[in-house]
Computed example of a mutant assay.
Amino acid sequence: MPYEWTTAPDATPQQMRLWPHQSLPPRGFAAFILITFVLILIPILSMLGTILLWALLPFVLLAVGGMYLALQRNFRARQIEEILTLDETHARLRRKGPDGSVKEWACNRHWIRLEKYEKGGPVPHYVTLRGEGREVEIGAFLSEEERIALFDDLTRALFR
Results as ranks from 00 to 15, higher is better:
1 M>Y: 11
1 M>F: 11
5 W>E: 07
6 T>L: 09
7 T>P: 00
7 T>K: 05
7 T>V: 08
12 T>D: 11
13 P>G: 09
13 P>M: 09
14 Q>V: 13
15 Q>E: 15
16 M>A: 13
16 M>C: 13
19 W>S: 12
23 S>K: 11
30 A>S: 10
32 F>P: 01
33 I>Y: 02
34 L>M: 11
38 V>A: 14
39 L>K: 01
40 I>R: 04
41 L>N: 09
41 L>V: 03
46 S>I: 08
47 M>V: 07
48 L>D: 04
50 T>V: 09
53 L>R: 04
56 L>S: 06
64 V>H: 03
64 V>L: 06
66 G>A: 06
69 L>F: 15
70 A>G: 12
71 L>T: 07
73 R>Y: 09
74 N>K: 06
76 R>S: 13
77 A>W: 10
78 R>P: 00
79 Q>D: 11
80 I>L: 14
81 E>F: 03
82 E>I: 03
90 H>L: 07
91 A>P: 02
92 R>K: 08
93 L>P: 01
95 R>I: 13
97 G>N: 13
98 P>C: 03
101 S>G: 11
101 S>R: 14
102 V>L: 13
103 K>I: 06
108 N>F: 10
111 W>H: 12
111 W>D: 13
111 W>R: 09
113 R>G: 02
117 Y>C: 00
117 Y>L: 08
121 G>D: 01
128 T>Y: 01
129 L>V: 08
131 G>S: 05
132 E>N: 15
135 E>F: 00
136 V>M: 01
137 E>S: 12
137 E>G: 08
138 I>V: 15
140 A>N: 07
141 F>T: 04
141 F>H: 04
148 I>N: 05
149 A>G: 02
150 L>A: 02
151 F>G: 01
158 L>E: 01
159 F>Q: 14
159 F>N: 12
